[in-house]
């Protein structure tokens, strides 16, 4: 299988990985909300919370998928052996994603949070970081990176 042929499965895999972890983030978030935010809170109906939360998960899933796809595309088509600093770029993309995972619930809270429809404490950002950054981007990138740079994501050498 050459570079061109392996790129397409990798792109599909990146999308699937993010879909799976978006699902985990959604159901996990709903479980956390039921346990900590919604129980006994009559001002915030569960259906309405889940409705807004599903948007948040969807947007965050799209953003994380774009980051993973960007990394996949870079390793398959853009990177040359002659240039270094690829792990640095991989880390920067990951850190930006961490920032977005932390900030996006807060941004949603500011936009839609009047009447406390969406209340998030640190649990949802942590869940997002785990789902989208730790598993979605980090572990995902280990599997979707071109073989030429298969060791570039941190600790990828242990797995591949």
């Amino acid at each position: 299988m050459d570079s061109q042929n392996e790129a397409v499965p990798h792109l599909i895999m990146a999308v699937v990985i993010m879909l799976v972890f978006s699902g985990i983030a959604y159901f996990g978030g709903c479980k956390i909300a039921a346990m900590y935010y919604l129980s006994g809170n009559e001002k915030v109906p569960a259906e309405e919370w889940e409705h807004y939360y599903s948007y948040l998960v969807m947007y965050m899933g799209i953003i994380a998928a774009l980051f993973l796809l960007l990394w996949t595309v870079l390793t398959h088509w853009a990177f040359q052996y002659s240039s270094s600093g690829k792990r640095g770029l991989w880390a920067i993309l990951g850190l930006i994603l961490v920032g977005l995972c932390v900030a996006s619930p807060k941004i949603f809270e500011i936009i839609f949070g009047s009447e406390k429809i969406l209340i998030f404490d640190e649990k949802i950002p942590i869940l997002f970081v785990i789902c989208y950054c730790l598993f979605g981007y980090w572990v995902g990138s280990i599997f979707v990176t071109s073989e030429r740079f298969k060791n570039t994501p941190l600790l990828a050498g242990l797995v591949r």
Partner: peptide, 23 residues
Amino acid sequence: SQVTTAKIETVLARGERTGGIIS
């Protein structure tokens, strides 16, 4: 042929005796 620099690099990188868990 369709052999490119990228293909050679990719196949060479794939390896057969790597120490990875999956390998």
